[in-house]
Design a protein around this nucleic acid. Structure first.
Lengths: 328, 328
DNA sequence: TTGTAGGCGTTATCAA
DNA sequence: TTGATAACGCCTACAA
């Protein structure tokens, strides 16, 4: 900057004014702009951050084991939604992969080092060190999904998993199914537990633990294994609520191999309304998860916190309607 | 830092020495460490960067339209591979979504602002402004996939798309197929063009343009449309090389609906060896793309450049063997 | 082994 | 409208 001040024959203060707005005479301005173009000058952000005490960047943290991260059909859409909003607000979204303890530590340093002004956190587990750090340094942040900790200092954006699960299970009942099972996943995460709760609520007295197969992940393989288990335990099963579309796809594959017609013999419903849902044969009835919107709202919430607003909602619950197709 | 120097009753110089190594007396050290723990002090990275002129971070840039990004089965694995290496070297990988012109501009500022010491670039298009910027400011960088520009200042990591496509097509020929079509995608990208070239080379004189269906993206829908087109143009088709596994999955769905048996009536092969390949019925013969390794090598290449090494290879080509399953 | 002091490139304040 | 100047928090000589 010194260089271009010299080149334009003005002081650094004036250069700064054309950069960041202020009173500058036309002659000075053109001279400076010419010099900037000449040298290809770009302000040093480290210096700027040091002075301004902010980075104009927001971190997007996915605290997932990586296999899960890659399978998740929603996370990409959430990122894009968040990026759209942040981008418009002039913020750089930087997403950080946390894939080991070493990562955790480094990310912690990164966050407290002033590289970002805020954070969007996807599927934090309870007592995660990163989560605690963020709360401790009072960094503007938002969770996607339920907050994992009891203290609700950090707002969250999500959907009503319980309600939607209850609703889609109810409609399975309404279509005359009698032995309705569930393939439940990821019970250590809020979404997993909530969907199981919804299923249970819908069934009420007719709930039968023998009809619930538990599998670790929301993936195709989980659907395959879960369905096999269910079929073995209850050959007369005529309805299945799979905790995600990928799981439902795996389940349908097993049903096909077992010679059961969907939806004739067995009704199947999923969750997410992801690309899977359109690809299954027949297309899947499922719960629409507004991933893009979730990302948008999350970004807005951090942005408002960064801006110092105090009237930020503690939580935002987005509608997640059932999409009725042909699998049930 | 001033604070903790005061708290520990020493000078800032001494504090710095316990932070970054140097001669410090045991008493001073313990006092300082206590003070650090007390306050929860973390060094300000902006200031440190300003002084050291580096950030210990590497950018991961995917210059893709977002829809493509979400569909790509490899990009996640590449990121994880890169992150593993960078993490070990103490670098923070930050991935930046580029989803609009506004994004491009902001990312450019971000890069030249000293937020990262190097960059890994996925599927840059020719004449991309970001690419040019990186070359211009001589930032350590590496491309994943062919370099889009003629000047080869920036090394790249990839696979031999032409060779692998040729090989898998050849084996389709060797199994006795006579009318072998291809569903080609993304011809505006190097991988797309190269795979078509390999197919053409394998067929030699028997190459027939009427047997090539072009679709825009490497996705399931592309496979569906491409296969329909091919079937219409040449009902006697008995072999198909799909430019990716997702495309192959779409094609197989159409073949199934048309009553053609795979591999009995039509042999189908894909490319990527992604999760799709195991899910299709029958499992897909395909080309294994070592995505994780690609990420690893890319990270190593930038890291070595950042370290000032000059003997960095201009390119790394990883093996991409054919995986023979049951679809052909 | 420790303290002091100057500067990294910006921004912000204050006079002029 | 402009220029000088003092921070921002850290690192690194150099002196003690």
């Amino acid at each position: 900057m010194k260089d271009i001040a010299a080149a334009a024959g003005v002081s650094r203060g004036t250069v700064n004014r054309v950069l960041n707005g202020g009173y500058v005479s036309p002659e000075a301005r053109t001279a400076i702009e010419a010099a900037i173009a000449e040298v290809g000058y770009v302000p040093n952000t480290a210096a700027r951050n040091l002075k301004r005490r902010r980075s104009e960047a927001v971190g997007f943290l996915a605290l997932e084991p990586h296999a899960v991260l890659l399978e998740d059909p929603n996370i990409g859409a959430i990122m894009l939604g968040a990026n759209a909003v942040l981008s418009l607000a002039g913020y750089q979204m930087v997403s950080l992969v946390i894939d080991s303890d070493r990562d955790t530590e480094r990310v912690a340093r990164y966050l407290s080092g002033g590289f970002v002004d805020g954070a969007i956190i996807v599927s934090a587990r309870a007592y995660d060190p990163i989560t605690r750090l963020i709360a401790q340094i009072a960094m503007p942040a938002v969770f996607i999904g339920h907050p994992p900790d009891l203290d609700n200092a950090i707002p969250f954006v999500g959907i009503d998993n319980v309600g939607s699960a209850r609703e889609i299970t109810s409609r399975l009942i309404a279509t005359g199914r009698h032995r309705i099972g569930m393939i439940a996943c990821a019970l250590n995460r809020d979404s997993g537990g909530d969907r199981l709760d919804g299923y249970r609520q819908a069934l009420g007295d007719r709930f039968d633990p023998a009809l619930v197969a538990e599998v670790p992940h929301y993936d195709y393989l989980g659907g395959v294994n879960g369905m096999r288990e269910l079929l073995e335990r209850e050959p007369g099963i005529d309805g299945v609520f799979a905790a995600s579309d990928a799981v439902a796809a795996g389940a349908m594959q097993v049903l096909r191999e077992a010679g059961r017609d969907v939806p004739g013999d067995v009704g199947v419903v999923g969750f997410d309304d992801s690309a899977w849902a359109a690809r299954t044969q027949p297309p899947l009835s499922t719960v629409h998860q507004p991933a893009r919107e979730i990302g948008r709202h999350a970004a807005e919430l951090v942005h408002r916190q960064i801006g110092g607003q105090t009237d930020v909602p503690r939580s935002v619950l987005l509608p997640s309607p059932v999409v009725w197709r042909n699998s049930a």
